[in-house]
Design a protein around this nucleic acid. Structure first.
Lengths: 139, 139
DNA sequence: CTCATTCCTACAGTTACTGGAGAAATGGGG
DNA sequence: CCCCATTTCTCCAGTAACTGTAGGAATGAG
């Protein structure tokens, strides 16, 4: 059974070394097996769990939410309503963020393209930020 | 000249009191004038600056970027290229974030709606997170 | 056996706040 | 003028999710 060092694991999953140790500390990863000289060694199972964690983080789940899911998956007989709930909450959250960012995009587009003066005193960027009235949208 | 207490300023701008003090500490706000008893007092000018800061934060600018803009606006004779640059950088950033979130949204939609089993062991959410192959998109 | 590379632990720093403790100032009512 | 509730003061700690550093030990190829 080919055990990986933390560096190998890091390269294979794209998760940085201190982050892997941090996940262990946060009890997302189980305490790793150790070599004679006290270095961490990882098996395929642990690589898979780290990929799970990474993927979930990329989806924006918090450490706490991920820990919930991991605990959940340790009890396969439980109903999966909670897992559904976590995913649904995440989706709502992401949609909210997108909406907000769209508004910002619009405003920044207007700001960044309309600067006519070449001196700060005429600069649209500065004026737009200083004077909220120049915004068309609400926020 | 109606000077505001920090609480008044907070209510008028919607910026929390500790945050106002934090902005002073971060040198976004100038050190406030003080009353006899050492309490902060603010004028209209300072209220406007705080609104500027709030607005810029809502647009996603970092504290550092905002400080740059404030420094810039203190020197109206300088060309406004830098202010343009900051706004343009921000725009690129926001667009990147939107793109990423769109992908997450798609994936979460698929995950959150396709759970067929009623036990965790059949739960699509868990399986999708555990098994990256279920993703259609790359990331 | 040597030595570069990797790993260990422990701790500090990051960003942008937020909250609490304990003490002092403020301002309206009696 | 005093009382007292409310507000403010400073300082410090905590948040999320890492990232980086220092000083020292283990690993493994030559």
């Amino acid at each position: 059974m080919d055990m990986l060092t933390i560096g190998d694991l890091s390269r294979r999953t794209g998760v940085k070394i201190p982050t892997i140790r941090y996940y262990e500390q946060m009890r997302l990863m189980n305490p790793a097996e150790r070599s004679e000289g006290n270095q961490r060694r990882y098996s395929r199972l642990e690589r898979e769990r780290l990929s799970f964690i990474k993927h979930a983080r990329e989806l924006g789940l918090t450490i706490d939410a991920i820990r919930e899911l991991i605990d959940l998956s340790a009890h396969p007989e439980r109903p999966c309503l909670q897992a559904d709930r976590i995913a649904a909450e995440q989706l709502t959250d992401v949609r909210g963020k997108i909406e907000k960012l769209r508004k910002l995009e619009k405003e920044l587009e207007r700001i960044a393209t309309q600067c006519a003066g070449d001196q700060v005193k005429d600069c649209y960027v500065i004026r737009a930020l200083a004077n909220h009235q120049l915004c068309e949208g609400e926020h």
